[in-house]
Design a protein around this nucleic acid. Structure first.
Length: 580
DNA sequence: TGCGGCTATTG
DNA sequence: CACAATAGCCGCAG
């Protein structure tokens, strides 16, 4: 059944007629300013006026779970000032189900229907089935079962009726994904609730759209001053930039009898230069040169040069101009589940800002930051996903490493190394002896890690607790023993912990997002185990308490029976640098 | 012009 | 320099 509505009230009435209530899936397709809905077997085209107002009204009165093709839709809504509570993002769910990062509609569709991707239609190509009776180009799905390329690339969709038809397709896709996820949990392929993971990951995409839009508050003037003090004022042209580089280089060259032919930006040159002053190193990384500062003054100068060069090239005036707006907000693109294990990633330096630059991350007038990080999240997550009883007991302590050290009969520092070595797959060095103690003390946790490593070595794909597929890649010539196999083993071993930790973190983040409600408070940074919120001063203590409550709620949603204790360290600060 | 190597930064 | 990420510059192949 298809209907056309002309106002928010009609849209709400139509959806209600079709039985849509809080949390019901509603397909949403947006193209430019046209909007279409799908619910059950019904499609609704929104005609006339501001179609986005209908989305806002439906969100306000019904609050469904919006089923989206991709975070682009969420970004379009946020740009229009609309923030929805919950979503099912089929692109994000596809990455969970199928692993990897590719998630375009054609691929998602082909995956769910068992279609050979090599035959995926291409826009503009002659359709071999084109002459067949019943092949109606107005339909998004072709008679041969593939999505029509013109619908995928958006060139076909122009009307709100088309948008509604496209919304119907995404709703169908979500239903198929739900079936796949339920099957995973039912057959035991996934220990956790993979559907719940899909919902949290989808909502994390909404959060990412908001993070990209809102940005991280920066004191722009302070940033200019700090950068200028490190690398000088912003060069106005290429000649000034070259002069700046020459000046910085000279600080190093002054320690050499001859600097001829030395390019400090070329590691091979630097290595040869160091050799000439009697320093022979396999590479010139800072940690290796650190102990050689006393051997020759050029080492000190070189390390200082590296620091300044890094600011000049990566976090200097250009970075500021490109990524910090005139409103004093650092903005970059966010991904809710990138990379191997599904961590959040961010561009524009949001995830690797040098510590010295945190001074300029400053709350706006009348606001403060509430910063919270999860303590020792990876070993605690390991305790949960492995079900290791002894390690679970250790999580009851504020400092997990204290009871581990006691049990192993070693110093705390050694215990920490042993636990990290187990999770990363390190076998050499200090860790060796303590690792054997781990086997005896925490057999279930060690078995869990070892199983993951073995599967990785054998080239078998694995799934995290929450259901994310970890693809370990092709195995060349049956290699299950060589260096590549060992690397796959470490990769798989760590992905099971890091990936599960990322899942818990995102449940926490979206729980906080939801519980903030109407408060004038925003999450402005997510950093693997850390949340930074920008809040009104008078709300700060309330938000501190809320973060802690949400961690309890999130831990329970993520793993209702783990019995593991998670801890958070929270502080109220004006500048990010004040924390930690 | 694209890619691997080296380097630096973060969790 | 164990696990993950982004990002810049260099040399080299095409």
């Amino acid at each position: 059944m298809h209907r056309t509505v002309h106002s928010p009230d009609e849209a709400i009435a139509a959806l209600s007629d079709h039985g849509v209530q809080r949390g019901s899936p509603v397909g949403l397709a947006v193209h430019d300013s046209t909007v279409g809905f799908a619910a059950g077997d019904h499609t609704i085209a929104v005609e006339g006026g501001d179609a986005f107002r209908c989305v806002a009204a439906v969100e306000r009165t019904i609050r469904p779970r919006w089923v989206l093709w991709s975070p682009d839709t969420a970004a379009a809504l946020v740009r229009s000032g609309i923030r929805v509570s919950t979503a099912w993002d089929v692109a994000a769910v596809h990455r969970l189900l199928a692993g990897g990062w590719r998630n375009d509609p054609a691929r998602v569709w082909a995956y769910l229907h068992g279609l050979d991707r090599r035959h995926t239609p291409v826009a503009g190509q002659l359709d071999l089935m084109g002459g067949d009776a019943g092949d109606d180009a107005d339909q998004p799905v072709r008679p041969d079962g593939y999505l029509r390329a013109e619908w995928v690339d958006g060139s076909w969709r122009r009307s709100s009726t088309d948008a509604a038809a496209w919304a119907a397709v995404v709703l169908r896709v979500a239903a198929l994904q739900g079936e796949r996820l339920r099957a995973l949990s039912k057959t035991g392929a996934v220990a956790g609730d993979s559907e719940a993971t899909a919902r949290a990951e989808s909502t994390a995409e909404l959060l990412c759209a908001e993070l990209a839009h809102d940005g991280l508050p920066i004191d722009r003037l302070a940033a200019v001053e700090l950068i200028s003090s490190l690398v000088g004022p912003r060069p106005q042209n290429e000649a000034e930039a070259a002069e700046g580089r020459r000046r910085r280089d000279a600080e190093v060259f002054v320690h050499l009898s001859s600097a001829a032919g030395v390019d400090l930006r070329n590691p091979a040159d630097v290595k040869a230069m160091l050799r000439r002053v009697g320093i022979d190193v396999p590479d010139t990384r800072a940690w290796r040169l650190e102990g050689m500062r006393s051997v020759h003054p050029v080492v000190d100068a070189l390390l200082a040069w590296r620091k300044a060069e890094r600011i000049a090239t990566t976090f200097g005036h250009t970075w500021l101009a490109e990524h910090v707006g005139s409103d004093g907000r650092l903005r970059g693109a966010w991904s809710a589940s990138d990379g191997a294990a599904g961590r959040m990633t961010a561009q524009a330096g949001l995830h690797n800002l040098p510590a010295e630059l945190r001074d300029v991350v400053v709350a706006k007038h009348g606001h403060v930051f509430v910063r919270a990080d999860l303590g020792q999240i990876e070993p605690r997550v390991l305790a949960a996903v492995s079900g290791d009883e002894a390690l679970r007991r250790a999580t009851q302590d504020d400092d997990l490493y204290a009871p581990v050290a006691k049990r192993l009969g070693v110093e705390r520092s050694v215990a920490k190394i042993a636990v990290l070595a187990a999770m990363y797959g390190q076998t050499s060095g200090t860790a060796g002896q303590a690792l054997r103690g781990m086997e005896a003390a925490y057999p279930a946790a060690m078995k869990f890690l070892d199983t993951a490593a073995q599967q990785g070595q054998a080239g078998i794909d694995i799934r995290t607790y929450g259901g994310r597929l970890i693809r370990v890649g092709e195995v060349a010539d049956g290699d299950v023993r060589g260096a590549a196999a060992a690397a796959r083993g470490r990769y798989a071993r760590n992905a099971m912990v890091q990936g599960a930790a990322a899942e818990l973190f995102k449940v926490w983040a979206v729980t906080v997002r939801a519980r903030l409600g109407d408060l004038d408070a925003r999450i402005v940074l997510c950093l693997h185990d850390e949340l930074l919120l920008h809040v009104r001063e008078e709300d700060a203590t309330g938000v501190v308490a809320l973060l802690d409550r949400c961690l309890g709620e999130a831990a329970h949603r993520w793993h209702p029976t783990s019995g593991v204790r998670f801890v958070t360290d929270t502080s109220i600060v004006r500048s990010w640098a004040e924390a930690k």
